[in-house]
Structure formats: C-alpha cells, structure tokens
Computed example of a mutant assay.
Amino acid sequence: MPPEPFFHEDSGAVRFWVLTAASTYVGATIGRNTLFYVYAGGRAGSEPVSLYLQHRREIDDAVLRRCASGSIEPVMLREADLTPPRRY
C-alpha cells in the first residue's frame, strides 16, 4: 500500500502514487499552482491535497496516460496533461 498523498512544501507540489494496470504503483507530483489554475479557477487558498483528492480520478488518469506514452517515475503533471487541447 502506498503512502497517503501529501503536500511537499519545498517543491510546492502534492506527491501521490497511482496504481497501474500492471498492479504496481508509480509516483507522481502535481504543483500547487497547477491545481489552483485547473481546479480552483486560479484562486489560491484551497488546500492542495484537498484539491487533488476532489479530482483524483482525473489526475490519476492523466498520470496513467503519461506512463502509457513513455514517461518514467516520478511523473510530473503539467496543466497541459489535465486540460483538453483548444479547438479553434
């Protein structure tokens, strides 16, 4: 069983682990600013781990997509991993 998600103050990111289809855990991070921008409308003030937990399925799915495309541990999510491409 992996550790619980936690906020790492020095890096400004939530660290968490995602179960893969191979039944192994992969470590990942998502920055506080990315969480605020994507899930809180850019408003700081929400607790980063709480935001992660509220959107865990979507964030974990993004980690799995990155792994499927060849990313190695630790997977560091960016805004582009979580938002659909814009259509013009």
Rank of each mutant, 00 (worst) to 15 (best):
E9N: 01
D61G: 11
E47H: 15
H8M: 02
L51S: 13
E4L: 12
E58T: 11
R78I: 01
R65C: 10
S23I: 01
A28F: 04
R86M: 09
A13R: 03
R56D: 06
G12H: 02
R43D: 14
S71G: 04
F36E: 13
R66G: 07
V14D: 07
Y37N: 14
E47C: 14
T34I: 10
G45W: 15
L77E: 09
G12V: 02
D61I: 03
L19G: 04
R65W: 14
L53A: 12
R78V: 07
P5N: 01
Q54H: 11
Y52G: 08
V63N: 07
Y39E: 08
I72W: 02
L64Q: 08
E58D: 12
I72M: 06
P48A: 05
F36V: 05
M76Y: 03
V26E: 09
S50G: 15
A68P: 02
D60T: 05
M76I: 13
R56N: 07
A13T: 02
T29F: 04
P48V: 08
R87G: 07
P2L: 00
H8S: 02
A22Q: 15
S69P: 00
T34K: 02
R43F: 14
R86Q: 13
F7K: 00
P74E: 12
F36T: 05
L51V: 15
A28Q: 02
G42T: 14
A62P: 11
T20N: 08
Y37M: 09
V75R: 11
R32D: 04
Y88F: 15
D61V: 03
E4K: 06
R32S: 03
R66P: 05
S50V: 14
Y52E: 12
P5Y: 00
P85Y: 05
T83Y: 00
L51C: 14
F7R: 00
R57T: 12
R87I: 13
R65V: 12
M76S: 14
Y25W: 12
Y25E: 09
E79Y: 06
F7V: 03
N33C: 01
F16I: 03
I72A: 06
R65S: 14
L82R: 09
Y88I: 13
T83F: 01
A28L: 03
E47Y: 07
V18P: 10
T20R: 12
V49G: 09
N33F: 00
V75I: 13
V14S: 06
G12L: 00
W17H: 15
F6L: 01
G42S: 13
V18T: 12
S50I: 06
G31D: 03
L82D: 09
S46K: 11
T83R: 11
S69L: 06
E58N: 10
E73R: 10
I72E: 10
A62V: 12
L82N: 08
R66Q: 14
A68E: 12
V18W: 07
S46W: 08
